[in-house]
Design a protein around this nucleic acid. Structure first.
Length: 363
DNA sequence: AAACCGGGGAG
DNA sequence: CTCCCAGGTTT
């Protein structure tokens, strides 16, 4: 068989050499991560820990994930432990990590594995893909890392490495299939789990988005973009839309005895299932004030600023000492006693609003 | 196919 | 401040 790259055998040999070079680099430079089994170790990874880390790592940096991973695995060492945890407890522990649908799907997935699968994770991509919160990337990653299967792992790191290695200028996300084909051609049958982690480590530590360290890259010689000097502009991406500015009001209320007035947000939508301060809707145009209950609300003059995935928010903070008797019975409002209240249980924007509101109470 | 989902770090 | 980064689900 012959094509523009020469014989398929020659292509396989080249691919094998590239994988070998990378694995040799990984053996010396693998990062020490709490969920990782170091190369050369003779014990198998725990699929539960690999799954948990991969879900936490979706759209999230290693630095941010570390403390959350340690906390979750200490509280819930096995998937069956997590499956038995209470929803609110898990949401509170996830607070600050973002993309809260991940936490809801995490619990759904743990309960499915515990109840329907005897506490054992599927070892195939297909089986994993059927579980909540596990998409193509995560299914491939778990299959490769936890079960040493030759799955094609394609995350943002691998996309960037492939685009540069092969000097592909077509913009993402349109070029995804091209990049996946390149990644597939390089995936080895020997040590595919270590290989998958090696490519992602390469992208995270050497082949970085800005100022890649080409001088110390194990793939420096075969890298076409490096040869042509185009590495800094790859991968190209289709331009993103500008984020509008939305505004709203958060009402930070406290009873005379020090209980805080909080609200459990609906399970779906922005910050779904999380605790927060009651307030107006967040819209681009300013709107009517609508306090959750009658009280002497006072504008603090302070604004919590926060950026979500698709808009910037400016949240004005008002405070009041409230009367518990004014709370409507049928609302999502709840009083949280001072000794039970932890700001760290709130999503970041609500924690910012609390910091401003507390300052106003104290002054 | 496009919109909806947070947060942190670099510059 | 402004950019830049990065998977899954829902519609």
């Amino acid at each position: 068989m012959r094509d523009e790259f020469g014989t398929s055998d020659a292509r396989d040999t080249l691919a094998g050499e590239l994988a070998g070079t990378l694995l040799a680099w990984y053996d010396r430079h693998a990062r020490d991560l709490p969920w990782r089994v170091p190369p050369g170790s003779n014990h198998a990874p725990d699929p539960y820990r690999i799954w948990l880390s991969e879900v936490m790592l979706q759209q999230t940096t290693v630095a941010a994930v570390k403390t959350y991973f340690e906390r979750f695995t200490t509280l819930w060492p096995r998937v069956t432990d997590l499956a038995e945890a209470e929803d609110d407890r898990v949401m509170a522990e996830w607070a600050g990590l973002g993309y809260y649908a991940r936490a809801r799907n995490l619990l759904k997935c743990a309960r499915t594995v515990a109840r329907d699968l005897g506490g054992t994770f599927p070892d195939s991509e297909e089986g994993l893909l059927a579980l909540p919160g596990i998409g193509p990337y995560t299914a491939a990653a778990i299959s490769a890392i936890a079960f040493d299967r030759p799955a094609v792992v394609l995350d943002g790191n691998v996309e960037r490495v492939m685009a540069r290695l092969h000097d592909i200028h077509d913009p993402l996300p349109g070029s995804k299939m091209t990049l996946k084909a390149r990644a597939e051609a390089l995936t080895p049958q020997h040590r595919p789990g270590d290989y998958a982690q090696a490519v992602m480590d390469l992208g995270a530590t050497i082949c970085t988005p800005r100022s890649p360290a080409c001088g110390i890259c194990p793939w420096r010689d075969p890298c076409v973009a490096r040869d042509r000097g185009t590495q800094a502009e790859l991968p190209k991406k289709t331009p993103k839309k500008a984020k509008p500015i939305r505004q709203g009001i958060a009402y930070v209320g406290r009873t005379p005895s020090g209980d805080w007035l909080l609200e459990k947000r609906p399970d779906s939508g922005l910050l779904g299932g999380m605790l927060g301060w009651p307030g107006t809707a967040w819209a681009e145009a300013s709107q009517d004030h609508a306090p959750p209950l009658p009280a002497n609300w006072r504008d603090t003059g302070a604004e919590a600023r926060h950026t979500f995935t698709h808009f910037h928010l400016r949240l004005a903070v008002q405070v009041a000492v409230i009367d518990p008797g004014q709370i409507p019975g049928d609302s999502a409002l709840r009083l949280v006693p001072a000794q039970d209240f932890r700001p760290s249980d709130l999503p970041t924007v609500m924690r910012k609003a609390f910091d401003l509101g507390r300052t106003a109470f104290d002054s």
